[in-house]
Design a binder for these strands. Structure first.
Lengths: 197, 197, 197, 197
DNA sequence: TATGAATGAGGGTTCATTCAT
DNA sequence: CATGAATGAACCCTCATTCAT
């Protein structure tokens, strides 16, 4: 019966459950296993979280906020659309590399009964950010004309796919490579650095 | 207790399990539910499949073959790289629309203990096909110069992401839109039809 | 895995659960123990009963019907109120002796969240039967005048109390003794056989 | 963390546990809930009571003493058997109305593994008191001749049943009604006030 | 081939109890 | 005295799997 502060134990549970959940998925993870990974007893988990679902939700919410904040801060002051898009892509990819576990969990349990609406909302919000960047680029003459909504959805899809590749297959894709590819498709003049290394 | 031929019953189980598995994922699906959906008894499932895992594997294998065959047939005789790529994208997207269920299942259980190697192999094989197309395009002067391996991985990632979007969020992305976007990034001269509707 | 008919197993579970429930009460009884007493596995219990509560309810319902039927049949054709009351008391007491277990269970879990309304209804129905008998007795001049409702409630209470005594303390009270006592209180002329043995 | 005297806290726990126990029964009541009702922490309960069982026993003992004392005081100096019996009935019924909770608890957990002997002893002691009253009544010529042991048991059973009715069904039975009924059965001459209101 | 009764390990969750603070 | 974090056994229930019919 190690006496620790409540907060410490809670963090410990969250870390352990992130590990277990993302390896096995929600249903296949057991509270028993999470408790073991956190080196506490089963009962203790239930002191900090009402039940399995709440533990899971808590986990998701925590991580999502982290990313949302990062994205939010950086954009408004950017000068060119091109630079903004580059940053957007970089942040998402860096986050994915850093939080492979979470990404896996997030994708895997998308479509899971609870919390799906929130997930979709997050995704749509990201698309809107891209849309704004594209509009700005078209207005400033940097980008070719195109339907910003459609294009934004395709770009977000692309980012999602690359993140999936990173998380699932442990392949490293550098942000610059992806930026170059996408900018190739967007820029009026092909003044991108050639993406041959 | 409808008398059917063995094959019929087996197909019936496979169809039912596709339905249940893709709605709930592997772990959360129960043999009881699958049997009910197939309108047979639990015991009968075990006549045709050794256990739950084998049933699942069988399902995956079935569907994967379908796609592989479609992709395989069409390529070799294509003329331009541009057309080949368009077809490749179209076939994947059409397949995704038609088999949302399977896609979901596939992604969800990626990383699931068994069968992961096969999944990765399939994916890499698709990347190789794209790589060949890109090389051909560069050689023929259609495409800009780039590292074919990297670019192929990015394109496959993009396709994967769009498929994910289609399957998860029920959004419709037309193959032509995606082709245009990708070709924009690849073609030497921006001679793509503008992707504004 | 003894193969029996479903009905047999169900009866076996009901018998075992009657035993366990009435010894320990609802909450303190565990499905494990009931299964053990019935010499079957835990899972089997859940084939026949949706859950613990349903098993309990089923038990109660079964036994109550038995008694209700016995009481119902015998009354209408009776001649004197005195004989009717004697029979009523005898049937209740005989039933109590035979089903001590059930009586215990019934009383113990009275006030338990579920099923209370049904229990009260049964009880009130019994009171009404006594009331009718008393009215008949007063009309025919057998019984002294009194408020039939009040008296019926007291008599039913008395029966209940004696049954409780039988069930809880394993004391034998012969129906004739109780009848004599009650008739003493009801009859106009003290023409009861003296209740000294 | 209100500072109170130890005694105060103990009383508070007893009151809370009476409330909870009699609503839910022994097994279904949790220390957590009792602590909450007493507005103290779980640990504190264990300062005053060794464990759940001891808390329960303590409660029972407390209440039983109250009643025993009341019964004890009043009897010896009574004049007629008739008055004595009336008082006995009145005191029991008044006590029942006042302590429905306790009655419920007492009945419900009768047969519970521990404490049953004490309960039976109390009951038998009450029967003995009635027996003495009846003997006195027969000797003095007030009561008809009967077997005092049997009759006492029946009367005690009757009282118990009425108390049960009061506690379980929230029905009000006035002591006088019950006294009248019982005296009707006992008195030589039917010189009881007619129990029609 | 098809059934469905039977099994028991393992899931989520609760709860009496302990003890360092 | 009082707290509340920690424990783990035991609860109800589900499920993959087996097998006599």
């Amino acid at each position: 019966m190690n006496k620790r502060s409540g907060l410490e134990t809670k963090k410990c549970i969250l870390a352990a459950s992130m590990d277990v959940f993302s390896r096995k998925g929600y249903t296949a993870s057991s509270i028993r296993e999470i408790a073991k990974a956190a080196k506490i007893s089963i009962g203790t988990v239930y002191i900090y979280f009402k039940n399995k679902e709440e533990l899971y939700q808590n986990l998701i919410e925590n991580k999502k906020q982290e990313l949302t904040e990062k994205i939010g801060y950086i954009f408004l002051e950017k000068k060119s659309a091109r630079e903004a898009l580059k940053d957007f892509i970089r942040i998402h990819l860096e986050y994915a590399v850093k939080h492979k576990e979470f990404i896996l969990l997030h994708i895997r349990e998308h479509g899971f009964s609870f919390g799906i609406e929130k997930k979709r909302a997050f995704f749509n919000q990201q698309i809107e950010i891209i849309e704004k960047i594209i509009k700005k680029g078209i207005d400033s003459g940097e980008f070719r004309k195109s339907d910003p909504g459609n294009t934004a959805r395709i770009i977000m899809g692309t980012i999602r796919g690359i993140i999936l590749t990173i998380a699932l297959d442990n392949v490293n894709v550098r942000p610059k490579e992806l930026s170059n590819f996408i900018l190739c498709a967007l820029l009026k003049d092909k003044q991108v650095k050639n993406n041959i290394p």
